[in-house]
């Protein structure tokens, strides 16, 4: 009976030793991008900016998706759209362009982790305040 008990122990050890333990390491490489929407009103000769935090060095896309009158009707007026770094009470742009609203990103920029901003401003084309929506996609 003693031999049987020893043999039983051998069986249990053999069964356990037959498997290689696999450890799963957390995967930090996949980070879901987030989309923030910055909505507001742009006055004549005015400028408005919005700051956001980039957590990963991935592309940041900025889309001026909507520019409308107070009635809600879309307009194709061109405004200045910029991307940059907050500086005091404004946004110091590293990239800027004059654009109308669209559904394809007007600004695409690779950014290191940090605080960034987008700014929308009137180039002199506004004849009335306009409502805007800017989509910012980043990680």
């Amino acid at each position: 009976m003693k031999r049987l008990a020893v043999f039983g122990l051998f069986v249990c050890v053999a069964a356990g030793a037959g498997c290689q333990s696999e450890t799963t390491q957390p995967d930090y490489s996949i980070v879901s991008p987030v989309t923030e929407t910055f909505q507001g009103t742009l006055n004549q000769q005015g400028a408005v900016f919005y700051s956001f935090i980039v957590g990963n060095p991935d592309p940041v896309s900025v889309t001026l998706a909507s520019l409308t009158k107070s009635s809600g009707t879309a307009v194709t007026t061109s405004v200045r759209l910029g991307f940059g770094i907050p500086a005091g009470e404004t946004c110091s742009t590293t990239t800027a362009l004059t654009t109308a609203s669209g559904l394809q990103a007007q600004v695409l920029q690779v950014a290191s982790p940090g605080v960034y901003c987008v700014i929308i401003s009137d180039t002199g084309a506004l004849t009335e305040p306009l409502n805007f929506a800017i989509k910012i996609k980043h990680s």
């Binding site: 929407t37 909505q39 998706a65 909507s66 520019l67 809600g72 879309a74 559904l103 929506a133």
Partner: peptide, 12 residues
């Protein structure tokens, strides 16, 4: 695009 301040759609 969907209006984040309301429930509608803001126009392009």
């Amino acid at each position: 695009v969907p209006d984040v301040l309301g429930s509608g759609c803001v126009f392009t």
